[in-house]
């Protein structure tokens, strides 16, 4: 199956470990867009990313990048994509310049001028050793490499973990610039950082190794709603509308999957608020724990 509209297609991906399983994970990212891959720690985000990069061997399922099988065309695919990990995996003892010298020859389309320009734009001193760089600088170095070999797909595992707000805002800017070219796409995992979620076109939510939902972010945020009201509004029937409910002495707050339906029931009686992705994640994870 070749599909050129989707830059990344994951289909029924399964991987078993001793204490954790990734079960039937499927989603697709259309070319030109940004997808946020959200879920709590240990939900399978890194495992999925490592499977895409062939750092882990899948048990079953299929992964297509640029419409090509990720194992069969591994080299061709990796030439056209880039990665940013949550931790540093570069050689700490080396300078930026030497590290780039090592990496550059592996890429078929390395552009030295672009790399130099990125270093200048990102204010990175090429003589500095990697261990002297701050977390944000290391991330920008990864991005400089990504931009210098013309990557069309950027995959990032928890790129904002441990970044200060300044660095996060810079990252946001770089990503927004990257997708000015409508052939480029970004796939990033996070356990929720509101600033980065702003630019996500699609959201895929994974919990305990299974996909909870994968859809355009605007659709999700428009369908779901947070309802707040007094506890006596809740009976067995109305409780069924909720994904999760939190009650306290003075009232309740809960997430509903169908805002319109809830509105018909609670109009004038309770408060309806726009949910955040964080709300959706928290209530879903907690709701499942209760069940």
């Amino acid at each position: 199956m070749v599909d050129t509209d989707n830059i990344l297609t994951v289909n029924k991906l399964t991987k078993h470990f001793k204490d954790f399983s990734l079960k039937n994970v499927s989603f697709r990212l259309p070319r030109g867009y940004v997808m946020g891959f959200i879920g709590p720690n240990g939900s399978g985000k890194s495992t999925t990313i490592k499977l895409i990069l062939n750092l882990l061997c899948k048990d079953s399922g299929q992964i297509n990048v640029f419409g090509l099988d990720n194992l069969e065309h591994e080299l061709a695919i990796k030439n056209r994509m880039a990665f940013v990990f949550d931790e540093n995996h570069f050689y700490e003892e080396l300078s930026i310049r030497d590290m780039a010298r090592i990496i550059a020859p592996f890429y078929r389309h390395w552009e030295p001028q672009t790399f130099e320009k990125c270093l200048k734009d990102f204010v990175i001193n090429p003589k500095q050793k990697i261990k002297q760089l701050s977390k944000g600088m290391k991330m920008k170095f990864s991005l400089a490499i990504a931009l210098s070999h013309g990557a069309e797909l950027l995959i990032m595992d928890e790129p904002t973990a441990g970044l200060d707000p300044m660095a996060r805002s810079e990252l946001l800017d770089i990503l927004a610039t990257l997708i000015q070219d409508e052939r480029n796409s970004v796939f990033f995992s996070t356990h929720i950082t509101p600033d980065l979620d702003k630019i996500a076109d699609y959201v895929t939510f994974i919990n305990q190794g299974e996909i909870v939902l994968s859809a355009p972010k605007d659709d999700i945020l428009e369908k779901y709603g947070v309802i707040k009201g007094s506890c006596d509004l809740l009976d067995e029937e109305s409780k069924r509308l909720f994904v999760g409910i939190k009650t306290n002495q003075f009232g309740f707050e809960g997430l509903v999957r169908d805002k319109e339906k809830a509105l018909r029931r609670f109009r004038g009686l309770a408060l309806l608020e726009k949910p955040s992705l964080e709300d959706i994640m928290l209530y879903t994870v907690r709701g499942e724990h209760h069940a």
Binding site: L53, L55, L75, K78, H89, F90, E93, F106, Y107
Partner: peptide, 16 residues
């Protein structure tokens, strides 16, 4: 050196 930074992860993500 390869082990210290788990650089094999980085190497295996490169086109090689």
């Amino acid at each position: 050196q390869d082990d210290k930074n788990k650089s094999e992860i980085m190497l295996n993500s490169l086109p090689l």
